[in-house]
């Protein structure tokens, strides 16, 4: 089975302060480290696991700046055979524009695949829409929130979708299809610096987004960024750690959960 898997380089924003610049038209990423999107890491692992077991090849594709080569090297270190970079000058905020670019790329290059994997969403914009729009544009069946792949057959797969409250739904989906992978589906393998260095020797192909009408199919536009609306907010306990912890214990006693 040949699997195309999409992987995105995103800013690591956990525990980082995000600053708006240019009157909310931009976010200052200059001091932030970057990483692979968590969901894509699970998708790459799942794709590699499937070809390790049943044969075929994984091709990792990234849409982004030249630096996105990082996440392609990482995917190759995990077991992908090829890495394709579709370079775009600026972020495509609209998931429709991204899906249209991917469709144009796949159709123009005639990239062969049996299944396309994406992560359910990306950590930065959380749209959770690229896989679904892409499936529709390619006229393929779609399944999202996939938390388990029970079997991979010649013309179909049996997968489990994560619903709410611990419930899952088992679904049969014909291939070719687009599948969006949920985090927690597997244990992504550890990638060493040596492994990434070795992967650097595998040639990655680079394409120009402008050759595939990047950004032409936008249906929404970003007006501006804002900070989150402030709610009540917590009463902050400050001071020496020992005093803060003593105060915490008082609260627990007051609430009757610790005697």
């Amino acid at each position: 089975m040949n699997i195309l898997v999409f992987t995105k380089r995103v800013p690591a924003t956990q525990e980082e302060e995000l600053r708006l610049i240019s009157d909310g038209k931009d976010v200052d990423f200059s001091k932030l480290p970057f990483k692979v999107n968590d969901w894509d890491n699970y998708a790459v692992e799942e794709a590699v696991k499937i070809v390790e077991k049943g044969g075929g090849a994984v091709t990792a594709v990234s849409i982004g700046s030249a630096e996105s080569d990082e996440v392609l090297r990482r995917a190759i270190a995990m077991g992908a055979k090829d890495g394709f970079l579709v370079e775009v000058d600026q972020a495509l905020h609209d998931p429709f524009a991204r899906s249209a670019l991917i469709r144009n790329f796949i159709q123009k290059e005639g990239t062969p695949f049996d299944v396309i994997f994406t992560g359910v969403q990306s950590e930065d914009d959380q749209f959770a829409s690229v896989g679904g729009i892409l499936a529709a544009l390619l006229k393929l069946p779609y399944v999202s929130m996939v938390i388990g792949i029970d079997s991979v057959e010649k013309d179909h797969m049996i997968v489990r979708r994560e619903l709410e409250g611990g419930l899952q739904e088992r679904v049969r989906v014909a291939t070719p299809c687009v599948v969006s992978i949920q985090s927690g589906i597997n244990e992504p393998r550890y990638v060493s610096i040596m492994g990434i260095r070795k992967a650097s020797k595998v040639e990655r192909k680079s394409f120009k987004g402008t050759d595939y009408d990047a950004g032409k199919d936008a249906h929404i536009e970003l007006v501006q960024w804002t900070y989150p609306p402030k709610k009540g907010g917590a009463q902050m306990l400050t001071g020496e750690l020992g005093d803060v912890c003593a105060k915490l214990m008082e609260i627990l006693k007051e609430k009757g959960v610790y005697q």
Binding site: L18, D124, Q126, L222, V223, W225, P228
Partner: peptide, 10 residues
């Protein structure tokens, strides 16, 4: 966006 650290207006 970014787990509620920012919001985008569209």
């Amino acid at each position: 966006y970014y787990s509620d650290k920012l919001f985008g207006e569209f």
